[in-house]
């Protein structure tokens, strides 16, 4: 049907029309800044990462370790019972190989986001990145270890662990 139409009705716009403001153009840069309160859970979690340690909390009712550390158990809806220090080794639960960035640009080196079950925690997992490995060799069940940033570069953030690499 479309092949019979030589000229579409209407006024076509080019990028030039927009750049030269030959049509109504309005620009606005939203100025939205936030400073989130870390509170108790996030606060200690990040303080411990700065020290090179992963800390979770424990709910004695459902006998789960919660990671990232939080002060209440969302299953039992009660305050947790204790802080627990966790190991920085684990097993890949699931992963993806990300070939595209946020701006839909092609990444030269793909990222490998992964869910890593922490050893000795009963299956609790941390969301992080895997590196120092050929993406094609990453497998579920693969054993990995945290690669920490040098102490002076840590700032109390999830990126204080640079990435995880195969053991």
């Amino acid at each position: 049907m479309t092949e019979n139409i030589k000229v579409w009705p209407g006024t076509p716009l080019s990028e030039k029309d927009i750049k030269e403001k030959r049509i109504l153009v309005t620009e606005w840069q939203p100025n939205l800044k936030y400073a989130w309160d870390a509170g108790i859970g996030y606060g200690r979690y990040f303080a411990e990462l700065k020290k090179g340690r992963i800390v979770g909390t424990r709910c004695d009712k459902c006998r789960r370790v919660l990671l990232p550390a939080r002060v209440f158990c969302e299953w039992c809806f009660r305050t947790v019972d204790a802080w627990v220090h966790l190991q920085d080794t684990g097993t890949v639960n699931t992963f993806s190989v990300a070939y595209t960035g946020t701006a839909a640009e092609r990444l030269k080196e793909p990222l490998i986001p992964a869910l890593i079950e922490i050893d000795g925690s009963g299956g609790v997992a941390i969301m992080h990145l895997i590196s120092e490995v050929d993406p094609w060799k990453v497998k579920m069940g693969m054993r990995v270890r945290a690669v920490w940033k040098p102490e002076q570069e840590r700032e109390g953030a999830i990126t204080d662990i640079a990435y995880w690499k195969p053991i």
Partner: peptide
């Protein structure tokens, strides 16, 4: 201000 509570802890 409420720096002692994250929004999650406040809701809880």
């Amino acid at each position: 201000i409420s720096p002692d509570l994250s929004f999650k802890e406040m809701m809880f």
